[in-house]
Design a protein around this nucleic acid. Structure first.
Lengths: 202, 202, 202, 202
DNA sequence: GATGAATGAGGTTTCATTCAT
DNA sequence: CATGAATGAAACCTCATTCAT
């Protein structure tokens, strides 16, 4: 049976509510422990409606990832736009970037965590996530190129790949890692690491 | 039904074969998509035997994680022992450590990924994995302390936490990230980053 | 909800379009694998409209069978009317009849098959089909009676029942049977059989 | 999940009971109106057992057709062997063949009816049924060849195809056709038709 | 003890029909 | 009216675990 493309406002709302319920559930209990009936009733609709708007459970997962990526991307862009790169030294700039990224990821922290590991299970999610990462990497590379004279790295392409991934992983660690160690100390240490790596002279 | 503790060699072999079959399956298809019958028949035994050696499906998972941690740990230790820290500069040492870690993780790359996914599902696995990480972190801290005079980091505790996690994540990236970028270039860049962070003078 | 009886041309067209869509679908995928939404969208109308013109799914099926029977009957009659019985020997006449029947059935070959399948599921369809058959049988009987002197069969009633059924089944065979054997040879042989049976002297 | 191949007698019995229940149900209510739970409970087992032995509903249908074909084939062979062709005129021989075929088909009359129409829905069933028919046709051809001198048909190949199909269809008619007309009269008329077609002189 | 058959709860998915807008 | 969203019963199928032989 084909999925329904909502035409009236009511249908659009229902679809959105189901999607949000799915994201909530996946974040809370993980993909495999969530069942479609729960997703539906979490959105206040019967199962039938779930299958009216989504082909199957995988389908909502894909939609959720899409939704999440778009959300994070727009968040990061919004935050990044507030940074005034001109007046900042590298260390301060890094601090802002990392803090912004943390903020951006805190919209749906557990969902992020859930999909990070589904990535390797499902090629569709992988492709989807890679697109987001590529976009972010390109942005970083542009920034590095602008600063080329004041930084020590030469291969800005490979460097931006490394930085992006490292920042992403670190944020993941900060958000999900147990708080045994002082968060701020860790962040400072991390920024110190990046700053050493990027700054021409210490 | 009590779980059987194998006493003769035959029983030990059977249990081990089931465990290995489980690890293989979990790595290939993930925990939730693997069923006990498959695990059993992958080991060449009937389902009944599975339940003779393991309480339930979760039980093999725990055993698998234990087994994996022990394996990786002993692998890393074996590799690490071959390093002669005395004669090495920081950069060469880091190179060795990273390469060893990559080698150590390549024993069962997909299983590692699966566990990372399951950590959030099961507190027992979380605890178990954390123990391994703590052990590794402690080792790193000891090493850093020995080198205290020749490195720039001061808080060796927080630094070792950061390094361990960063290395771990980077290896994960190297193993699962698609090889769009030159692996060796990425590794060199990563080592460069760590080296800048650790070395007193560049 | 009452079934709407269309009064203006627009409504009549819609009902007809739904009916034709249903016949098409039933023929292609069978009654049980076709759903009302498909029928509706095949006619370019929303499901709601389907239920405006037909009480339920069974209802279109009945209408389809009716429509089909009428269609075939009028087809056969049209074809039959072109035969000039006066100038023909039995063999030539049979040839014309069989060929006409084949042509008549080729309008919706798969739908015919589907109905045959459903006959056993639904008494209404059975009755409906039987009426058509009775009508055809009566026609055959009349023809046989007219030719009584030149044919060898005596009980024209039982003979027309046999002939009708045999022709019907043979056509079904010709249309659905795989073409491993030469179609024309088979038709000739079949006509030979009927002709031997009917002709007084060979 | 793979289907189970029963190794112990108990399992073999269970599978057979499920198969027989399925045949019974399909015959009574038709394929689409029978559900797997019913089939299972008709065999006195839970659904799980059904799916242990059969991949899905279609799978039992295939198995049922196989089983049925084998049954009919052995029945026909048994009956046919009792005919002493030497001492019989064509008419008596035909009478025996038709009567035997009717008897053979009465093992599971409704099931035969059900699958006849599923044939065109499912290629697997089609192939399967065609094999049986080809076998029967070959047998008929051999018989015709033996009698070549005393019969009027020349192309025994095409003739046997026609005869087999015609007999099959007629039996179907006799068994499922409503008894409005005298069965024995119809059979006699049918034999008359075949006999005219086959006999050299009437 | 070893085997593989049995169990059935629980998950996924479909769709005829109704009904609100 | 016309539309398409909502409903939920009922079908399909899976599998961890137990248990009889």
């Amino acid at each position: 049976m084909k999925v329904r493309i909502p035409k009236r406002q009511k249908g659009i709302n229902t679809k959105q509510r189901i999607l949000e319920s799915a994201i909530r559930m996946f974040a809370q209990k993980g993909f495999y422990k969530t069942n479609t009936k729960e997703i539906a009733s979490g959105a206040g609709v019967p199962v039938g409606s779930f299958y009216a708007y989504f082909k199957n459970k995988k389908d909502v997962l894909y939609a959720s990832v899409d939704y999440y990526n778009t959300l994070i991307a727009s968040n990061i862009i919004n935050f990044q736009d507030t940074i005034n790169y001109e007046n900042l030294d590298i260390r301060s700039m890094l601090k802002q970037i990392v803090n912004n990224a943390i903020k951006a990821h805190q919209v749906l922290p557990d969902f992020h965590n859930e999909i990070t590991f589904l990535i390797n299970t499902d090629p569709k999610i992988k492709t989807n996530m890679e697109k987001s990462i590529q976009y972010a990497t390109k942005k970083t590379e542009e920034t590095l190129n602008k600063m080329k004279d004041s930084i020590r790295v030469k291969n800005t392409r490979i460097s931006s790949v490394l930085i992006n991934r490292t920042v992403e992983d670190f944020i993941h660690f900060i958000i999900y890692g147990k708080p045994e160690y002082d968060r701020n100390l860790l962040i400072d240490e991390f920024i110190d690491m990046l700053s050493c790596y990027l700054s021409k002279s210490q």
